[in-house]
Design a protein around this nucleic acid. Structure first.
Length: 289
DNA sequence: ACTCAGGTATTAC
DNA sequence: GTAATACCTGAG
């Protein structure tokens, strides 16, 4: 049913920072600068007016609760930013650049599949693949004369063949999606157990058994899904670049080892490494484009 | 024509 | 263990 919810005088909430910091793929900017996206069985438009935010759309449950959970509104990002900004000037500048970042509570299954698709791929193509996947196998939601599609559940992908994935433009990731879906529907990996396990090392190990999930994708899943592990530090080409530029300063960034980067991240950022990564990543990407 | 993009799996030392 | 290599696809 259609609902609306407004929050006045909000801090640490900027649409561009949240939706374009690399954590999600299904939010799209509209002509008026607002963003519309699908998550769970909901379609929402998010609009910022001054210091107020307005959420409108089709929401299965109570919109206030839904939004508070998904947008991580309970967390004190001001406090986190203050803490990180004290570390050094690099963090200070990065945070200034993306002060409105929030880490979304995204569905674990959707995050797993999305980041498998992200491997050695670019954002426009990742988004296109996910939309086609949803349009073909997800459920329709109608809102304001538009049709949106939910992200397909494991059951909805259960009988999809490798060839069908290939036809959607998955490329060499087709087999990974097929195998991972199979592992999950056959309960080789139990997502509920992962969500309930407080041991990050164990959860990570389990994620790594999934086809197409390596260290980087596993860390993205840990950080960007409802698993919400802020201590992990996903290292992709951009993070490698920014960490080398700011801290390690090796002439050839490709020679910097992953361990080296992880060590610096742990020492500098501790259990907030994931958040620090997000500010740095966002900053480095913004100064290029 | 050729490189590159949010890496992973496989193979070879 | 660690290094090298192939890999769909489409945009620039």
């Amino acid at each position: 049913m259609e609902q609306e919810y407004k929050i006045e005088n909000i801090n640490s909430f900027e649409l561009k920072d949240i939706f374009e910091c690399g954590q999600c793929f299904r939010w799209n900017i509209q002509e008026d600068g607002s963003y519309t996206g699908v998550f769970g069985n909901n379609v929402l438009n998010v609009q910022k007016e001054g210091k107020n935010v307005i959420f409108r759309g089709i929401c299965k449950k109570d919109i206030k609760e839904t939004v508070e959970y998904y947008f991580d509104l309970e967390r004190d990002y001001e406090a986190i930013k203050n803490k990180l900004a004290k570390i050094d000037d690099n963090m200070k500048i990065s945070i200034q650049n993306g002060q409105g970042i929030r880490i979304l509570n995204q569905d674990l299954w959707e995050t797993i599949i999305s980041f498998i698709i992200s491997a050695n791929n670019n954002i426009p193509r990742i988004k296109g693949i996910i939309e086609r996947l949803s349009a073909k196998y997800g459920k329709q939601i109608k809102w304001k004369n538009n049709i949106y599609y939910t992200f397909p559940t494991p059951e909805e992908l259960k009988n999809v063949t490798v060839e069908e994935y290939r036809s959607l433009g998955l490329g060499f990731r087709d087999i990974r999606l097929y195998e991972t879906t199979k592992m999950i529907t056959e309960n080789k990996v139990n997502l509920k157990e992962l969500e309930e396990n407080p041991n990050t090392i164990e959860v990570r190990e389990k994620l790594l058994t999934l086809s197409g999930v390596g260290p980087k994708v596993a860390d993205c899943i840990l950080l960007f899904s409802s698993l919400k592990r802020f201590e992990v530090f996903p290292i992709d080409v951009w993070v490698r670049r920014v960490m080398n530029d700011l801290y390690i300063k090796e002439a050839d960034e490709k020679k910097v080892s992953k361990n080296q980067i992880e060590k610096v991240a742990r020492e500098k950022f501790g259990n907030l490494a994931g958040l620090a990564q997000q500010y740095l990543f966002n900053y480095r990407r913004n100064i290029v484009s």
